[in-house]
Design a protein around this nucleic acid. Structure first.
Lengths: 145, 145
DNA sequence: CCCCAAATGAAAATGAGTCTCAATTTAATT
DNA sequence: AATTAAATTGAGACTCATTTTCATTTGGGG
């Protein structure tokens, strides 16, 4: 949750990889951290643009991939055809409840489920690196209609 | 698992919807049921083509969507940019272990996990319609490298 | 300050999936 | 068997997210 730590992480990552720290990358990261959960490249592009209209589409895409590679963001697919990115704080990640009616997304975590996942994986000889759990259904509001 | 029952299901579905049973749909369904777990439209197109090169791309896409609508197939995204379809037997569905190294996909089911999912969803006021659980990691063979 | 590898932006390219439309086929009806 | 209306098909055009290309600009070590 500490934004300046995340920024430092990213800068270190760039140095290690022999990449450069640029104004654009900083701006994109700032905007990415400003709030938005589940931002698509398009979303982020729009936001960044409103501060600095000279930033290109491709740069946003490229930078987002760097975030993922660096580990400060994770890619998600919710089935609407757009890849969405979510900022991660190292030891924290969450699963999602997605309303098939209104599209609302609720995050949750459940240690018990995680533990069972490890168990299942181990039974098949796998070592888990990450997981994706999406529950699709109807939220309370949409159960009326 | 009873292929002729699945075919009958699909035929009934077509009748109910006022749609027509065609040679192409039969051929595509036959090929779809022949084996392939996790077929992409492209995969299936290739296979169908090897029997009948006159079948079009669009027809395969359209038919696959019908399968999904009918409930004899489910769509899956494994993050490689292609939608994959998996044949379903009504009450049976599975989650996946995906090796990030060799791409191997292992299916599993765990009633305990499912139960916990229901619980979590209920706690947030959701009624689950379906879920997707993917565990990414390294399979036994790839843990060496 | 110089240099060059890396980065950028604009535009073209790609690739999965969808749509259009003229020609064909299905299946219900004469 | 012939008729017919509606559904289907195949080819290719199209969409839209994402990637690549390439000429130009920029970061930062020497």
């Amino acid at each position: 949750m500490d934004k300046s730590k995340i920024k430092d992480d990213f800068r270190s990552f760039l140095v290690e990889k022999g990449l450069k720290s640029t104004r654009q990358r900083e701006e994109i990261l700032d905007e990415f951290l400003r709030d938005g959960a589940h931002l698509s490249a398009e979303d982020l592009y729009m936001r960044v643009r409103s501060n600095n209209p000279r930033i290109g589409y491709a740069t946003v895409y490229r930078t987002l991939k760097l975030f993922a590679e660096c580990g400060i963001a994770e890619q998600r697919q919710f089935g609407d055809g757009q890849t969405r990115y979510e900022s991660t704080t190292v030891d924290e990640h969450h699963d999602h409840l997605i309303c098939t009616c209104c599209g609302k997304i609720v995050e949750f975590e459940d240690p018990e489920i995680e533990h069972l996942q490890e168990k299942v994986a181990a039974a098949h000889g796998f070592i888990i690196e990450r997981h994706r759990l999406n529950l699709f259904g109807r939220c309370r509001d949409c159960q009326a209609s």
